[in-house]
Design a protein around this nucleic acid. Structure first.
Lengths: 337, 337
DNA sequence: AGTGGTTTCTACAACGTTGTAAGCACCTGT
DNA sequence: ACAGGTGCTTACAACGTTGTAGAAACCACT
């Protein structure tokens, strides 16, 4: 039921290689030969064996995208853009969930990696520079935070600047007791630390004293964590008048907790997030957030990887910073002119 | 930099096959030989070439999951469960986005399929029974609607019953002008038609006349479509007092549109969705919805596929119906006792 | 007819792995 | 010493594809 070049060749009365040539669109095949071969291919419903082709060619046409969790909307949206961008290079994307665990991340980069995929786009939470150095074999592009002097190409947004800008926006609304939700002290919390740095920088610029009772940790960055963090802030009596959440799902959770406490957003507490996920455009209220250009991040990552697989094979590691914007919506609206 | 069995064999002073035996955990290898080989493997950082292994073994250890869109939360959540379930079988999951287009769905089933993956879990929107019959080559499990007499295994929820139940719940709240949001007349709209059937059945049971001005089509099932559909309903003057949205993202969009019109949920309009996505547990108000057991759907699909690849290779197509529950939340709360 | 060039096709040898079958070395018990 | 195991290792031949190099057929022009 499953046929090979050889079967097609026998049926068409030509050599195996001629069939291969037809399959690959080689020019110099006589029209009637081509027709005979194509008839045989159709009759036998022949499909090339990709394992064999890959073995022969040394490439697989598959790249992997490894993200912490697919059902975090930011990563799902990013994945969609990566798949789209990869299609332009005729690549299939193998999507891997690492759960943010370093073991899984290492496995993504080495285990699956070898010979099954041509390259990897990795959104690392847990890997250190040392880990990455050990994986230098596979062409790789990293997304997200900088891993200092890592050996790989990198596409990122300026987390510190973006966090500073959005915090400054909250300050501009007249808020002074601004909570930060999502801090993490683990090595995995690189994003958290950068966004916290932006937050503190903005406070310092505005001459507002840093109050660590306003900084709420969140073990993960899901809605439930955001809600729990906000509830905890409210219960301890340091009533904030604004909150910068380190991502949008945290912010959506925080909105929920505020609603349950009967507090109005933005009147009582202004809320801002980070990522600009689809949900935030329809939530009640709609969510003010930092909007990184996800489509561009994905496209650049794919392009960098294409370079690594092509002529830029031995280029030094490159770093690209993708611009971001503030999306000012109801939860922390633009300042009236 | 990339080594083969041969290189390891030379370094360890043994045959290629002995190295292969060590790599594959074959029992009868002398301890000191094994140690020498392992040393060589470590020194050269050897990794097997999976293309070659697959070619030789005829299997790849990869299954594909093809869904319409990854950034529809329902599919993202489903994907996470499938990846988890597949890990128990040491399978890697290749995730494919079909966009609900039949061409892409066919490609997922045949193009990538051949020899690159061992099996496919497909969530078809657009494929007909005929399409699927043509693809009988690849072991396949379908999710979602039944394709009558399709050749493949099937895991589904009872859409008609679930839609009927939740509509009945809305009726039980005293609502009589119940809108249905998300109808589709295209062949791709199989889910839409089943859920509409459940809706009309519930109305009939309760003796409520069907009014097609209350049935709003939605080209896709995104938040924006739900919002547009609700706005359109409101603008035409057939003021509904409840809405059954055919999935949760439509419902979230509808909530938003109602909010913008100043209508209260559930007091003025009760809203129900379908899918039980994470967002609906934190939206304002929280969303009443049909909760299919996604984890079980994923696990059963993987088990069925495992069977097809093993001893059940030639079993007749099986159909499994996974139970669902109603999650009654704020947008259409439980009836007071 | 002979020359040179193009088009069309083919035989062969890889790619890196593992299954098969057989070989060698070492035991154990007579 | 020898037969019969058993444990360990190996040579070889596949798996299905494509690159290389070259053969065969054709053409156009002298």
């Amino acid at each position: 039921m499953r046929h090979r070049l050889k079967d097609v060749a026998e049926r068409a009365g030509v050599s195996v290689k001629t069939v291969s040539n037809v399959v690959n669109g080689y020019q110099h095949v006589r029209a009637d030969t081509r027709a005979r071969v194509e008839e045989a291919i159709a009759a036998l419903n022949y499909r090339p064996n990709l394992s064999a082709r890959n073995l022969r060619k040394g490439r697989t046409g598959v790249i992997a995208l490894a993200v912490p969790e697919l059902d975090i909307p930011y990563f799902a949206e990013l994945a969609r853009h990566v798949v789209t961008a990869a299609a332009d290079h005729d690549w299939t994307v193998l999507i891997d969930q690492t759960g943010g665990r370093s073991e899984q991340e290492r496995k993504a980069a080495s285990g699956i990696g070898d010979h099954m995929i041509d390259g990897l786009i990795l959104s690392p939470l847990a890997l250190t520079a040392d880990d990455l150095a050990a994986l230098a074999g596979l062409p790789m592009v990293l997304l997200g935070e900088r891993v200092d002097h890592g050996p790989a190409d990198h596409v990122m947004t300026d987390n510190v600047a973006a966090a500073r800008e959005i915090t400054t926006h909250l300050i501009g609304l007249g808020r002074r007791r601004i909570a930060a939700i999502g801090s993490q002290r683990t090595p995995e919390g690189a994003s958290a630390r950068l966004r916290l740095a932006g937050y503190t920088a903005a406070l310092a610029e505005a001459g507002i004293a840093y109050d660590d009772r306003l900084v709420a940790p969140a073990p993960a960055w899901h809605r439930a964590d955001g809600a729990a963090a906000m509830r905890q802030l409210l219960s301890t009596g340091v009533r904030p008048d604004a909150a910068f959440c380190f991502n949008d799902t945290l912010a959506l959770g925080a909105l929920r907790a505020l609603h349950e406490e009967g507090l109005r957003v933005p009147e009582d507490v202004a809320v801002a997030g980070f990522d600009d996920i689809e949900d935030g455009r329809f939530s009640i209220p709609t969510l003010t957030t930092v909007a990184p250009d996800k489509e561009r991040i994905a496209r650049l990552a794919v392009e960098l990887l294409a370079g690594r697989l092509g002529q830029d094979r031995d280029a030094p590691p490159r770093e690209l910073v993708v611009s971001h914007q503030l999306a000012l919506r109801e939860s922390a609206p633009p300042r009236p002119a």
